[in-house]
Design a binder for these strands. Structure first.
Lengths: 205, 205
DNA sequence: CTCATTCTGGAACGCTCTTTCCAAAATGTC
DNA sequence: GACATTTTGGAAAGAGCGTTCCAGAATGAG
């Protein structure tokens, strides 16, 4: 009977994910990862093969455990423009306001367009955001306006994430996002009934 | 009489700048920089003190020799909405379409918000873009709408750069930018006369 | 020519990195 | 208890890193 693992994988992958998000891949040395996860190098190697293997798993974990649930809440089948706006605004409050940015976006910048260990995860993350946004926008604005509006929101969101990562977001950027959604609401499809629930979904701030 | 330098500093800094832009700071090893610049390590150290010193100089050079002139053309005292749109669209054609992104944006993602060798340069780059955009927009839309519109363009531009870096820009994003400027033109201040020159400034594509 | 000064290139240094090795540990089964 | 299996932790290996050292090179001045 093999010795059981002494760690909870969920906890380890979450810790690794945050270490990679904070330091980037190159700067997250194995000793940094040891400290973050509480595991020794040989345990990490035994479990994940090598550093790149751990990164891939951490990125997958990020997509599944952070991006996925956020898209479900803010851009899911029942979501509205207010929920979409909340996707941006929740980045300003705990637990998303730690200033370390998004592992997908950070990895996009770090690895660039050459094939890499981040290629599939970055594409998956950006594609999922766009697809979800487009579905909400198709319901809210009608199907013909949705693709362009979704592409625009993706650009705005990536910009928001980069400036957040750099600590350069300010009230002006927030006002720009709020104005964007004011405009989107003015373009709401007449087929889509408005409800008082919409006002409560934006929160925070 | 001291031995003169065997290199042209402009050429070396430009080469280093591109190496840092392509590989990021952490991955641009001194041997990569040797290859890019054609100088040996000891010459680089003699001239710039250390790797961080070279990076700072390369980032400054980028701001002065690439960002500054681009802002002058696309967001200068005579520039219009069409010129501003060209700031985005020129990223799609040579010499700006090499897919390595922007040293400011890449460094923002790499170094984050903690104090670093990139802090001042990133802030200067983002601030300059915003200020220039805001001046154009104040002329074109009127001073009250300019701050929010500028902040929005900065977010869009950063997002455009990140997705460009990741090789994920497509026609949908370009259409979104074009639509953005269609909307901005509809909001042009009545005080600002339109000219046929405006149509020629957008190019390319 | 000598001199003083700075630059260059190759070699080397010391450190950090990623990864491997292997003995001991942790388990359930017999 | 012995056994087989996997995991863990500490030590070590080898490679790559950033940087320094220093002898020779390149210059203009005298």
């Amino acid at each position: 009977m093999a010795r059981p693992r002494a760690f909870d994988e969920e906890i380890v992958l979450t810790a690794a994910m945050h270490a990679f998000r904070t330091h980037g891949y190159a700067r997250a040395s194995v000793s940094v990862l040891e400290e973050a996860t509480g595991l020794r190098a040989s345990s990490l190697y035994n479990a994940y093969g090598d550093k790149a293997g751990l990164f891939r798993r951490a990125l997958d974990h990020y997509l599944a455990s952070f991006v996925g649930p956020r898209l479900k809440v803010h851009a899911g089948p029942e979501s509205t423009l207010e929920d979409l706006e909340g996707l941006f605004l929740t980045l300003l409050v705990p637990p998303y306001d730690d200033g370390q940015g998004c592992l997908v976006t950070n990895s996009a910048a770090e690895f660039g367009s050459a094939p890499s260990i981040a290629t599939d995860g970055v594409r998956a993350g950006v594609t999922a955001l766009r697809r979800h946004a487009e579905e909400v926008l198709a319901r809210e604005l009608g199907p013909s306006a949705a693709p362009t509006a979704a592409a625009r929101l993706v650009l705005l969101y990536q910009g928001f994430l980069v400036l957040g990562r750099a600590g350069l977001l300010d009230d002006g950027h927030v006002a720009a996002i709020r104005a964007e959604f004011v405009e989107l609401r003015e373009r709401r499809s007449p087929n889509r009934p408005s409800t008082v629930e919409d006002e409560n979904r934006r929160s925070p701030r």
